[in-house]
Design a protein around this nucleic acid. Structure first.
Lengths: 231, 231
DNA sequence: GAGTGGTCTAGACCACGAG
DNA sequence: TCGTGGTCTAGACCACTCA
């Protein structure tokens, strides 16, 4: 038997998908919904929380609950490092730092190796849609300062293998702030490590996308020769 | 300023990672935790819900809350169709059906095309760890009945391109039942479509993994020639 | 039957957003 | 200032597990 919150969520979901509640519309306030469904406000809030994790509504403190505009799903494509689409704008911030902790392991470099960090955020109409941090050993950083618009679209020269790991997890506080998503909404993360012919890591990228509106696409072809699985 | 539930979650998290609470241990009951932290039970429950989405604890109705055994993360590797590891057992169920709806689109076949479905579940020590449905047009189904143990480890012969799409979403009721996870825990899904030289889809696979203990790994190499991105 | 978590109530008070 | 959602309380009752 469905619970009250499921019944309420189902009713609101039906109203949204049927178009009686349109994208951008404000829902009745929580006390009003509670009165309408004859339940307490916490129960209404549980139903709304369900719809929120499904990406159907957005909650906005002090304003109300809104039917979420149908977000086009962002698509990340293997090797791109950031999602690319004509409607996405990108900002890049460059920082110099030294390898330590997790970064050291990822890039397989000694502690304190100088690195360049590129902090990329993509926006669609002012709303952040993805966050990426790209790390390159300083001695490999392109001499010509990367063009802050077109650079992340190409791959670093000389790569021979790229390994991309996809996970789903809760956002770090930094990620939830940067992507403006609630800390309870999962992010899809992609960790990309590119190596050159000598096996040296020439680039690592950490990418976070809002889990409810992102895909990652990978296209593979059979290896011409026997493919090694050296791990 | 952190909320009460964050503070409580943080404290319990610390006890788990410090080893004062070990995998498999039962936590004090919710009323006891509430008394200990001097809060109401709903607040304790919110803290526990946080830890649950992080995969740190398991709730078991009528028994208690338990520190979750540190699950080895399952790793899906590009093209494997199901996660492979020595400690994983697999069961396969074969069904014949006809293409319709979403399946029709995925396999790019006319309605009612005969298909063979392989329903694979992998287990680790009796616990389901992944669920996959693999679809193959009936006329391509291997004449020799696939060996129910070794078959899904190899790829269908004749593939020229595989496209794999990774998403994170809430589980369908079927998925949450099959994987024995709560309906609020995200699943990582992989949709894999393999095509032959003529562009015909020769196999589609839908894979669902518990989001908090799964990775998907993709390894790519530069195309020998110019790589087409025909979509 | 005793103890546990799951759902729900009916409020309170605080923090945020807009006029 | 007013209405909104965010957090929290202090219970109630039901459903499940195990002895």
């Amino acid at each position: 038997m469905p619970t009250l919150r499921d019944t309420i969520a189902e009713d609101l979901r039906a109203q949204i998908t049927a178009g009686r509640l349109k994208p951008g519309d404000r829902l009745p306030s929580e006390p009003k919904l509670a009165a309408h469904y004859k339940v307490s406000t916490p129960t209404v809030r549980q139903a709304l929380a369900l719809l929120q994790t499904e990406g159907l509504i957005e909650k906005s403190h002090g304003k109300g609950n809104f039917v979420r505009p149908l977000l086009r799903r962002i698509t990340y494509t293997s090797g791109a490092r950031i999602p690319l689409a004509p409607e996405l704008q990108t900002t890049i911030r460059t920082t110099n730092l030294r390898a330590r902790g997790h970064l050291r392991t990822l890039l397989r470099v000694p502690a304190n190796t100088p690195l360049t960090e590129f902090h990329c955020t993509t926006y669609e109409g002012g709303n952040p849609r993805s966050m990426a941090r790209i790390y390159i050993p300083r001695d490999l950083t392109p001499a010509s300062q990367p063009d802050s618009i077109s650079w992340p679209t190409g791959r670093t020269a000389g790569w021979v293998e790229t390994q991309e790991t996809v996970t789903a997890r809760l956002p770090t506080p930094e990620e939830s702030a940067a992507l403006r998503i609630s800390p309870t909404r999962t992010v899809l993360t992609i960790t990309s490590v590119a190596t050159d012919a000598t096996g040296r890591v020439i680039e690592a990228a950490l990418l976070a996308l809002p889990g409810d509106s992102a895909d990652a696409v990978f296209i593979s072809h059979p290896a011409p020769k026997e493919e090694k699985t050296d791990r």
